[in-house]
Simulated scan of single mutants.
Amino acid sequence: MIVYLHGFRSSPQSFKARLMAARMAELGRKGEWLCPTLPVSPAEAVAQIESEIRAHAKAGERITLIGSSLGGFFATYLAEKHGWRAALLNPAVVPDRDLSKYLGEQPLWHGGGSIVVEPRHLDELRALAVMQITQPQRYYLIAATGDEVLDYREMLAHYPGVVTHLIEGSDHGISEFADYVDEVIRFCDAV
């Protein structure tokens, strides 16, 4: 099963999530795809991800996470906790610091509506922090030097020894992600 975890204020309607879902459908693998809408609370998000995987995964099925931005932070926590593999797309490394300037009501990127970021959410993020990954071979990192939101150098430092695709330029959303979809799926399928 491939589980896509979207970023802060995002949803399964994000550009990258829709590209991945469409490609999985083209490959006849729609039943192996899961992309939940994550709540604003990091603790609730992680609990929901674990619950949905338990509900949808077949017995013994291998789980690979794809995490974008804040979803990459969650993917790292879950990969370390459960021994799962994770493909990380411009992952957040210190989200409690980065999101501290977003306290209060924040608009969602897709479908309207908003969320309210509370100080307790920053505490929940700190509680989920992975200080050092344990098995670099379980990870695949795509980092863009042109990411205008997160510093790619923090990503490289936090994920030493992982197979990395460093994109010169680009942006936080990885606008040319269509060029990398099959590369990400190959990582997900690798033994």
Rank of each mutant, 00 (worst) to 15 (best):
Y102K: 14
R120A: 13
Y77Q: 09
I115R: 09
L88A: 02
Y102V: 11
G113Y: 01
V149H: 06
Q106I: 05
F74W: 08
N90M: 11
E154T: 12
L99D: 02
A87T: 05
T76Y: 00
A127V: 10
A86K: 02
Y102P: 03
L141M: 06
Q132L: 14
R153V: 06
V149M: 13
R97A: 14
Q132Y: 06
E105H: 09
T134G: 15
E80V: 09
V93K: 00
F73P: 04
D151F: 00
V117C: 00
K101S: 14
R85I: 00
T145W: 04
Y140K: 10
A75Q: 00
E154S: 12
L150W: 03
D123R: 13
G67V: 05
W109N: 15
R126Y: 04
P136M: 11
G113Q: 01
R85Q: 12
L70Y: 04
I142Q: 02
G146C: 07
R126N: 08
D123C: 10
M155W: 00
E148V: 08
T145L: 01
G112C: 04
S114D: 01
L70E: 03
H82S: 09
D123H: 12
T145N: 05
D147W: 00
Y140S: 06
A143N: 01
D151C: 09
G72K: 01
R120V: 15
R126A: 13
G112L: 05
Y139K: 10
W84P: 06
L108H: 00
D98V: 14
K101M: 13
S68N: 09
L108K: 10
R120M: 12
L150A: 08
L150Y: 03
L78N: 02
E148W: 04
E80K: 09
A75N: 03
L150C: 06
L99R: 06
Q135H: 15
G146K: 05
Y77T: 12
T76I: 01
P95G: 04
Y152N: 01
L141K: 04
G111H: 03
Y152L: 07
Y77K: 12
V117K: 01
I115A: 02
E154G: 12
A87M: 03
L128C: 06
D123S: 14
I66P: 01
E124K: 07
A129C: 13
P107Q: 07
A127G: 10
V149E: 10
P107A: 07
A129S: 15
G111M: 07
L122C: 09
Y139D: 11
V117F: 01
R97P: 00
G112E: 02
I115M: 12
G112I: 01
S68P: 08
Y77N: 11
A86T: 01
V94M: 13
E124S: 05
P95W: 08
D151H: 09
D96S: 15
Q135R: 15
T76P: 08
V94Y: 14
E80C: 11
W109Y: 14
K81C: 03
